[in-house]
Design a protein around this nucleic acid. Sequence first.
DNA 1: GGACGACCCGGACACTTTGTCCAGGAACGA
DNA 2: TCGTTCCTGGACAAAGTGTCCGGGTCGTCC
Lengths: 218, 218
Amino acid sequence: MTSRRGAHRIHEINAEDVERHASLHPHVLEADVPASKIDRRIARTRRKLEHAFFHLIQDKGYDAVTIQDICEKAGVGRSTFYTHFTGKDDLKRRSLEHLRAELSAYQTMASTTDPGKALSFSLGMFEHARRHVGAYRGLIGSEGLAVSLGGIRGIIADLIRAELAGQGDRQDREIRVAFVVGAFMSVLTNWLDNGAKIEPADIDVRFRSLLFGGLSPG
Amino acid sequence: MTSRRGAHRIHEINAEDVERHASLHPHVLEADVPASKIDRRIARTRRKLEHAFFHLIQDKGYDAVTIQDICEKAGVGRSTFYTHFTGKDDLKRRSLEHLRAELSAYQTMASTTDPGKALSFSLGMFEHARRHVGAYRGLIGSEGLAVSLGGIRGIIADLIRAELAGQGDRQDREIRVAFVVGAFMSVLTNWLDNGAKIEPADIDVRFRSLLFGGLSPG
DNA sequence: GGACGACCCGGACACTTTGTCCAGGAACGA
DNA sequence: TCGTTCCTGGACAAAGTGTCCGGGTCGTCC
């Protein structure tokens, strides 16, 4: 115990840090609620918590992060955490909403400028992932080669499902969705685990070639 | 607590049950040690623990299973657990060794009887998985659509890697491995989550068609 | 078949994390 | 400024983890 507590703790994050950091969960935050109506204190607390979470998963990985860690780093009382989120998973889920919004925005954008390109999410995802390597690795697992994928997998699956709608029967479609999302997530995490050295555009080409052309050729 | 302890507890597993149950981790157990040299008590305890584990993950899922659960169901002292395994992950890892052995046996068998068939692990895996749906679901996650895959992913990756050896440069090969293993695991878990209704042979055909033929056609 | 030694048991211990509750102080919105 | 809402720090019970030990039990080996 010996919880000496004073002006500032180890790595406490202050408001300014939070403010100037654009990340996985930046703006879109209170998109569904009239942003003016929500108490500043609430917004601030949530922001601090999400940021602490965001930073912590990068060097400890999702599983290793405890709620106490988050609160400590965020400089927020632990009891306060529970007034905003029901637990770690809840926090994760809500943080991922931002990603979902960003991605589907990219998706619709890409499909209007280049209507012929199917499954256009992939490039955007590769790019987004590289921009936030740390967060993705923390969220996605990366320990060894595990792929927990939290909710990211579901997000991608939805995008694919939307695009494959109308093809074949439902059963067959679901198999295809599973196939694509699995292959994609796997290539993505593998790429990240190796430091994302290849350019997003390049890895995207390779992925799409395998996906549409099949394994056999080269 | 109130640990009344007597002849038998709630769902304690006895030696006979263990003996007659062929599963994910049956025979190959002490393959690396001269089987005759190891104390029967050790073998028995390990078997009981692995079996309890095996059963528990089927109705609670890997994460929800605690070491206490395992010991209780196995009828083994908790302190004894730690003399055999360092923790839950260790137990899981060792249990998976059996699967690895079984699969690679199947793999080499299939590739000798039908040398033309690449990536022949898939059918065997589908079949094996259906035989042990519960265990796979518990191990693999299945909550929502997450894919934690414990160590199974690594096992499959090794098989694929071995078969793809010598093609292209190392980087490209790893991408392919990631692609195949990801797609496969995803299709597999999706199949299991839907109750494994389709026949293993059928799902295998669909998977291989997507893999070698690409997504576009039908 | 008996003695020795390895193994297992149960219980205790210190520690960490979780989730809940409350009183009092601080900050917000009007 | 005033009332409401939010945050805090602390305490709490519960659950799980990992470690240690004394004493009983069961294999193994002679």
